[in-house]
Deep mutational scan, measured.
Amino acid sequence: SEEEEEEWRRAKERGEEIIILGILWKPNDEEAERRIKEALRRV
């Protein structure tokens, strides 16, 4: 969703871990980033 995407962007800017759509994303975690982008597209 729009607000999840916004939340994720803010976490990326701050360089902090975030759990979004049930996926743990850490800074520079390209695999998780790809999965999150896929999940955001499906929503």
Score class of each variant (00 low, 15 high):
22 G>N: 03
7 E>G: 08
12 K>F: 12
28 N>P: 04
31 E>V: 09
5 E>F: 12
35 R>F: 04
17 E>W: 13
7 E>F: 15
18 I>R: 04
8 W>E: 00
30 E>Q: 10
43 V>C: 14
12 K>P: 02
19 I>H: 05
42 R>L: 12
11 A>Q: 03
43 V>Q: 13
18 I>E: 01
30 E>T: 09
33 E>S: 07
12 K>T: 06
28 N>Q: 08
30 E>M: 13
30 E>D: 13
10 R>P: 00
21 L>M: 14
42 R>D: 06
33 E>Q: 04
42 R>C: 10
10 R>Y: 07
30 E>N: 09
30 E>W: 10
41 R>Y: 08
34 R>D: 06
20 I>T: 01
21 L>T: 02
27 P>R: 01
16 E>L: 13
36 I>M: 04
9 R>W: 10
28 N>E: 09
22 G>P: 00
15 G>K: 06
36 I>P: 00
13 E>I: 11
15 G>N: 09
32 A>L: 05
9 R>F: 09
27 P>T: 02
37 K>Y: 12
27 P>G: 03
28 N>A: 07
18 I>L: 04
35 R>D: 05
16 E>V: 12
10 R>T: 06
13 E>A: 13
8 W>S: 00
21 L>Y: 05
6 E>I: 08
29 D>M: 02
11 A>S: 06
37 K>N: 14
35 R>H: 06
38 E>D: 11
2 E>W: 15
4 E>N: 10
25 W>I: 02
33 E>W: 11
7 E>N: 15
36 I>F: 05
24 L>V: 08
1 S>I: 15
22 G>W: 10
39 A>F: 07
14 R>I: 10
21 L>K: 06
12 K>V: 09
33 E>R: 04
31 E>Q: 07
40 L>C: 06
39 A>V: 06
43 V>M: 14
39 A>T: 04
18 I>Y: 09
31 E>F: 05
4 E>Y: 15
13 E>N: 07
29 D>T: 01
20 I>D: 00
41 R>M: 09
12 K>A: 06
40 L>I: 10
31 E>Y: 06
4 E>A: 15
12 K>S: 05
5 E>V: 07
16 E>R: 07
12 K>M: 14
36 I>S: 01
2 E>M: 14
41 R>V: 08
28 N>R: 07
32 A>I: 04
35 R>L: 13
21 L>P: 00
6 E>S: 06
10 R>K: 11
23 I>Q: 01
1 S>D: 12
8 W>H: 01
33 E>P: 00
10 R>A: 09
13 E>L: 14
6 E>K: 07
43 V>G: 09
31 E>D: 12
4 E>G: 11
30 E>L: 13
18 I>Q: 03
33 E>I: 05
29 D>Q: 04
36 I>G: 02
12 K>H: 11
26 K>W: 05
31 E>H: 06
13 E>P: 00
16 E>S: 10
41 R>L: 11
16 E>T: 10
35 R>Y: 03
17 E>I: 10
20 I>C: 12
34 R>G: 06
4 E>H: 14
3 E>A: 14
17 E>C: 14
5 E>L: 13
17 E>N: 10
43 V>K: 15
39 A>M: 12
5 E>W: 14
28 N>S: 06
3 E>D: 14
18 I>T: 09
34 R>P: 00
40 L>K: 02
19 I>D: 02
35 R>Q: 12
38 E>H: 04
43 V>Y: 14
14 R>D: 05
35 R>T: 05
37 K>R: 14
26 K>F: 05
19 I>S: 05
8 W>K: 01
10 R>S: 05
17 E>V: 12
33 E>F: 07
32 A>M: 03
5 E>P: 10
9 R>L: 12
29 D>F: 03
7 E>S: 14
26 K>S: 11
18 I>G: 00
26 K>N: 06
37 K>A: 10
27 P>F: 05
5 E>T: 08
43 V>F: 15
37 K>I: 15
16 E>W: 11
6 E>H: 06
20 I>W: 03
30 E>H: 11
31 E>N: 07
31 E>I: 08
24 L>R: 10
39 A>H: 04
32 A>S: 11
34 R>W: 10
17 E>S: 13
2 E>Q: 13
40 L>M: 08
24 L>A: 05
2 E>G: 14
7 E>M: 15
39 A>C: 12
19 I>W: 15
34 R>I: 08
21 L>V: 04
9 R>C: 08
30 E>I: 13
14 R>E: 07
19 I>R: 08
36 I>Q: 01
1 S>K: 12
3 E>Q: 14
29 D>K: 01
41 R>C: 14
41 R>I: 08
28 N>L: 06
34 R>C: 15
1 S>G: 15
33 E>N: 06
24 L>W: 03
16 E>P: 03
16 E>F: 11
35 R>I: 07
13 E>G: 05
11 A>Y: 10
39 A>I: 08
35 R>W: 06
38 E>T: 05
8 W>V: 02
32 A>V: 04
37 K>D: 10
23 I>S: 00
17 E>Y: 10
28 N>K: 05
17 E>H: 09
25 W>H: 00
5 E>Q: 06
35 R>G: 04
15 G>W: 07
35 R>S: 07
14 R>N: 11
27 P>K: 02
12 K>I: 10
3 E>Y: 14
29 D>G: 01
43 V>T: 09
10 R>H: 08
11 A>P: 02
39 A>Q: 06
13 E>K: 09
2 E>R: 14
7 E>K: 15
9 R>S: 06
10 R>Q: 09
7 E>R: 15
15 G>A: 04
1 S>P: 13
24 L>G: 01
17 E>G: 05
3 E>S: 14
14 R>S: 10
34 R>Y: 09
22 G>Q: 02
15 G>T: 03
7 E>Q: 14
29 D>N: 04
10 R>D: 03
11 A>N: 03
4 E>I: 15
15 G>R: 06
37 K>V: 14
39 A>E: 05
40 L>F: 08
41 R>G: 08
12 K>E: 01
9 R>T: 08
6 E>P: 04
23 I>K: 02
11 A>R: 06
15 G>S: 06
11 A>F: 09
23 I>M: 02
23 I>H: 03
26 K>H: 05
11 A>K: 04
17 E>D: 08
36 I>H: 00
1 S>C: 15
1 S>H: 15
22 G>L: 12
28 N>F: 12
22 G>C: 12
4 E>S: 13
5 E>Y: 13
8 W>L: 10
23 I>R: 01
15 G>L: 06
23 I>W: 00
26 K>T: 12
32 A>F: 01
34 R>E: 12
22 G>R: 00
3 E>V: 14
37 K>F: 12
13 E>Y: 08
15 G>I: 04
5 E>H: 08
13 E>T: 08
36 I>R: 01
5 E>N: 09
42 R>H: 08
20 I>F: 13
1 S>Q: 13
42 R>N: 09
29 D>V: 03
36 I>Y: 02
19 I>P: 01
3 E>M: 13
30 E>F: 11
9 R>V: 08
32 A>Q: 02
39 A>W: 07
15 G>M: 07
43 V>N: 09
7 E>V: 12
9 R>Q: 11
19 I>Y: 13
13 E>V: 10
16 E>N: 07
27 P>D: 04
11 A>W: 11
30 E>G: 08
18 I>N: 02
25 W>Q: 00
40 L>P: 00
23 I>V: 06
4 E>P: 15
7 E>T: 11
32 A>K: 01
12 K>N: 04
32 A>R: 02
23 I>G: 01
43 V>H: 14
30 E>P: 11
36 I>A: 02
16 E>H: 10
32 A>Y: 02
25 W>C: 03
1 S>W: 15
14 R>W: 06
13 E>D: 10
29 D>S: 05
6 E>L: 10
1 S>L: 15
38 E>F: 02
36 I>W: 04
18 I>V: 12
38 E>P: 02
25 W>Y: 03
42 R>F: 08
7 E>L: 15
39 A>K: 08
38 E>N: 06
40 L>T: 00
21 L>F: 11
28 N>G: 15
37 K>P: 00
27 P>S: 02
18 I>W: 07
25 W>R: 00
24 L>I: 07
26 K>Q: 06
33 E>Y: 07
25 W>A: 01
2 E>I: 14
39 A>G: 04
36 I>D: 01
41 R>N: 11
20 I>S: 01
7 E>P: 04
40 L>V: 03
15 G>H: 05
9 R>E: 10
10 R>L: 08
9 R>Y: 10
16 E>Y: 10
25 W>V: 01
5 E>K: 04
36 I>L: 05
32 A>G: 03
32 A>P: 00
42 R>V: 10
27 P>I: 03
17 E>A: 12
15 G>Q: 08
20 I>Y: 05
8 W>M: 04
35 R>N: 06
25 W>N: 00
14 R>V: 08
11 A>V: 08
41 R>F: 08
24 L>Y: 07
6 E>V: 06
19 I>Q: 07
6 E>D: 12
28 N>Y: 10
6 E>T: 06
25 W>T: 00
